[in-house]
């Protein structure tokens, strides 16, 4: 039993990503979409706490949103995997429920 969480807000604007990570359980997945993808950047003021809070959790970003914002995928945390829209759908089907953090 696991949950796919989606986060669509920048962690530099709201606490949503951290709150989400603090409510994740081992085996859950967090997909960063829209402005949420900024939470996946390496070397930011929040990268360390994101990595720490995401222990036991799989992190994903939606490639299209990364590309749209001009973020080089090489700048993302090593822990983050990119998925396209099809991959998003796969993640939804692989988990028992989806929780959208707004």
């Amino acid at each position: 039993m696991s949950t796919l969480h989606t986060v669509n807000k920048s962690p530099f604007e709201t606490q949503t990503l951290l709150s989400c990570l603090n409510h994740c359980r081992e085996g859950d997945a967090v997909l960063l979409i829209e402005d949420g993808i900024y939470g996946g950047i390496e070397g930011s003021a929040l990268s360390e706490i994101v990595k720490e809070s995401a222990a036991g959790v799989s992190l994903y970003v939606l490639n299209e949103d990364v590309k749209a914002r001009g973020i080089d995928p090489g700048r993302l945390l090593g822990e983050v995997s990119g998925v396209d829209y099809e991959g998003f759908v796969d993640l939804v089907t692989q988990h028992d429920r989806t929780q959208s953090w707004l």
Binding site: M1, T3, N22, H23, C24, R97, T98, W101, L102
Partner: peptide
Amino acid sequence: SRAEMAEIMAEQDVILSF
């Protein structure tokens, strides 16, 4: 507690967020 809240979330069939 936060940990209990995480468990409650994990027991649901459907989660609607606001």
